[in-house]
Amino acid sequence: NLAEVVERVLTFLPAKALLRVACVCRLWRECVRRVLRTHR
Rank of each mutant, 00 (worst) to 15 (best):
L10N: 02
N1T: 10
V5F: 06
L2R: 04
E30N: 14
L27Y: 10
R20S: 12
R20A: 14
F12K: 04
E7S: 08
E30Q: 11
L36P: 01
R8N: 02
T38V: 13
L19K: 15
L2V: 00
R33F: 04
A15Q: 15
L2E: 00
R8H: 03
H39V: 15
P14V: 05
R29V: 04
A15M: 08
V21N: 08
T11C: 10
R33D: 05
L2N: 00
L36D: 01
L36A: 08
R37C: 06
L13C: 06
C25L: 12
L2M: 10
L10D: 00
A15P: 07
L2F: 11
V9N: 00
E7M: 14
E4M: 12
R33N: 06
V21H: 03
L36G: 05
R40A: 11
V24R: 07
L13M: 07
R29P: 01
V24G: 04
R8A: 05
V5T: 05
R34S: 05
R34K: 12
T38N: 09
R33V: 03
R29M: 05
R37W: 07
L27W: 15
R8D: 00
H39A: 14
L19T: 12
V35R: 05
V9T: 02
V32K: 09
L18R: 15
R29D: 01
R40F: 04
V9Y: 03
V24F: 10
R26A: 00
R40L: 10
R26D: 03
F12I: 04
R33T: 06
A17T: 09
C31R: 09
V6Y: 06
V21Y: 08
R26H: 01
C25A: 15
W28F: 13
L36E: 04
R20H: 06
C25K: 14
R26M: 00
A15H: 11
C25S: 10
R37I: 06
L19F: 05
R40D: 11
L10P: 00
V9S: 01
V32Q: 03
R20Y: 05
P14I: 06
V5Q: 05
L36I: 06
F12H: 14
V24H: 02
E4D: 07
L10R: 08
T11S: 08
T11N: 09
L13D: 01
K16Q: 12
V35G: 02
L27P: 02
R37K: 10
A17H: 04
W28L: 15
P14G: 15
V21R: 10
L13Y: 09
W28Q: 00
L10K: 11
R33W: 04
L2D: 00
A22C: 08
R26W: 00
E4K: 14
R20V: 12
V21P: 03
V32S: 02
R40T: 09
L10H: 01
P14C: 08
A22T: 04
V6S: 02
V24Q: 03
R29W: 07
L19C: 07
N1K: 05
V9F: 07
V21T: 06
A22I: 05
V35K: 06
K16G: 09
F12C: 07
A22L: 02
V32C: 07
H39N: 08
V5A: 07
C31T: 12
W28C: 08
V35H: 04
E4A: 08
A17Q: 07
H39M: 15
V9D: 00
V5D: 00
A3N: 09
